[in-house]
Design a binder for these strands. Structure first.
Lengths: 342, 342
DNA sequence: CTGAAAGCGCTTACAG
DNA sequence: CTGAAAGCGCTTACAG
């Protein structure tokens, strides 16, 4: 049989003891020179730094962690049951998180959980493997959050929670959606339908609220009958589109890209042209729609930045620095060919 | 300002010393009772096990790792620049990896790299944070692989490498594609076009080879002019579709789902109906196409299983067990409405 | 079958 | 400014 053996590396890595011996000083001094904590003579420090540079010494982070009672790891929790529309978001925010963590010499552990099973999270935490946790996406009622609080584990939510006591960072969906719809109204587009997804997710509630806010702000009354929520399947979306067409809306606003994709495909099938016959807007601009023709007017968020910022908040929190409880990041409105706007 | 302080948990966790003291035995014995290594009296073992169960003692994996010179972490490397089509694959295989790791009490660290920058990988490895690495997806020429070999770091590729010396686990793309095309040919469909993506990825080369194998196996000659590779943009795909239409192919085989989606949308635009006017097949069945009507005939792979198996191979390798150098996992052919097959 | 002791590679009061 | 020593929470020869 074609097999493979794991020959352990023979070239043992340098330890702090090696460095100390080579330089004829104590481990204590080496440690201090490297960490920058405690006094060390200028020239001693330089000798140490030069030596470890030349001999490629890297401190063992595990040992350091054990001595300091930390791990230099954070966990990123992602839902094991997420769907397509979330993926570009996860991909981009993950990049940001990894980058920020890396910059601060932390590493990111991956944990998947589902609504009913967060045993993976429990394992990781009871194994002492992480100093903090980033939760992404959140349900209105989130059991993982309860668990983290009980464990006294530092965590930050990348998203919005109704619970104001939770440390959270999110894109400003509500304001973004509001401003977007206002823009439409200011362009004389008043009959605007909304197709939304699962309202168990906080983000979808915020988007809906933004939509409503816009009408309030412009003294317009919105028509409840133009709102279709819980359109979680293609069939439901198509049904909603049909009804909105019957009501002769000028524009359909889609809460997310997956809904938007379904709307676009259905419109093509119905031979409705965009924006002549019907205008289309998405509340979220992901790569899913990137290549569509005509390009779709939408809100654009910087997910990578969101991840980076969320991670930096968690790290500060872990280090005992003060952080703002809730941070909302900006958005852009991209007017494109799918609407008759200017 | 609304701020948040990190109050360290006051309830210190039990250590092995606490357990030993409580039971009036030595740490050594406790350790042995838990690990199962070394002799311990039956009743002593039971007392220990009962105590830790009742008092919820969990060994500190970090300390254990330090003593044993291991970390109980593995790294999963994912490309920072992957596109939509890869995401369902990553999501599913990641689940499998996390599950298997979890079952064996390992954790998964996330590392993103790009073709030109694997500094995150370097950091993690030189920080001693992992015992092994899973590489996903592979380029024909992969710099990360060279690095891992030089570092003598155990790794396995979830994918196929042209280099036979690399530990690898993959879906059997080549055979799958071959059998799929043979199926078409056996159904009397002979004029079959192929639209493929970036051939810098090994998987795309395998799929092409599978396509060719099928013609060889059935004594048919394939027509090089019906093969369009490097269709990495929607425009290129549409151009290829047009040319294939001109050549009056009966069926278009798409190397991946993203290509397939473009083909389907373009067909809708051209008012070609499927399968009446043109038949369509995909070499990969992801959630991208899940809801399409008509459903698309395609190969289906169990990515979750792939991840699980890959992880188990890595873990065995780390533990010094013998493993097969190359493992190919099965596939299914799903005949659906997009082809006139039976 | 059990334990005292040394060790994994760091950090950090404490003392000088 | 520097060092000896104790400690982080485990494992594992070695000895009995």
């Amino acid at each position: 049989m074609d097999v493979f053996h794991n020959e352990k590396a023979l070239n043992k890595r340098l330890t702090i003891t090696d460095v100390a011996q080579a330089l004829g000083i104590s481990k204590t001094t080496v440690s201090r020179a490297i960490s920058g904590k405690g006094r060390v003579g200028e020239d001693t420090r330089h000798r140490v730094l030069k030596f470890i540079e030349e001999n490629d010494y890297k401190p063992n982070v595990i040992a350091k962690g054990l001595a300091q009672q930390r791990t230099y790891n954070i966990a990123l929790i992602i839902p094991g049951d997420c769907n397509l529309v979330d993926m570009p978001f996860f991909q981009n925010s993950m990049q940001g998180i990894c980058q920020e963590a890396s910059d601060k010499d932390y590493d990111v552990m991956l944990v998947t959980i589902t609504q009913n099973d967060y045993s993976n999270l429990e394992r990781m935490i009871s194994n002492n493997k992480v100093d903090g946790v980033i939760l992404s996406r959140s349900l209105v009622k989130d059991r993982a959050i309860d668990y983290l609080e009980k464990q006294n584990m530092p965590f930050v939510l990348m998203g919005t929670s109704l619970d104001k006591d939770i440390l959270q960072v999110d894109n400003d969906h509500q304001t973004g959606c509001c401003k977007m719809v206002e823009k439409l109204i200011n362009n004389g587009i008043c009959k605007i339908g909304l197709i939304g997804g699962n309202s168990a997710f906080v983000v979808n509630r915020l988007r809906l609220q933004g939509y409503k806010d816009a009408f309030k702000a412009s003294q317009n009354l919105f028509d409840e009958r133009l709102i279709f929520n819980e359109c979680t399947t293609r069939e439901k979306v198509e049904k909603a589109v049909k009804k909105l067409m019957d009501k002769e809306v000028e524009c359909i606003v889609c809460m997310d890209d997956e809904i938007c994709m379904s709307v676009l495909q259905f419109a093509t099938k119905l031979r409705m042209s965009i924006p002549q016959n019907i205008q289309v807007v998405s509340f979220y601009d992901s790569s899913l729609l990137m290549n569509n023709k005509p390009a779709v007017t939408s809100l654009v968020f910087d997910d990578r930045q969101l991840g980076k910022y969320t991670c930096s908040v968690l790290l500060k929190h872990i280090h005992g620095e003060e952080v703002r409880k809730k941070t909302l990041l900006g958005y852009e409105i991209a007017l494109r060919e799918s609407t008759k706007t200017f």
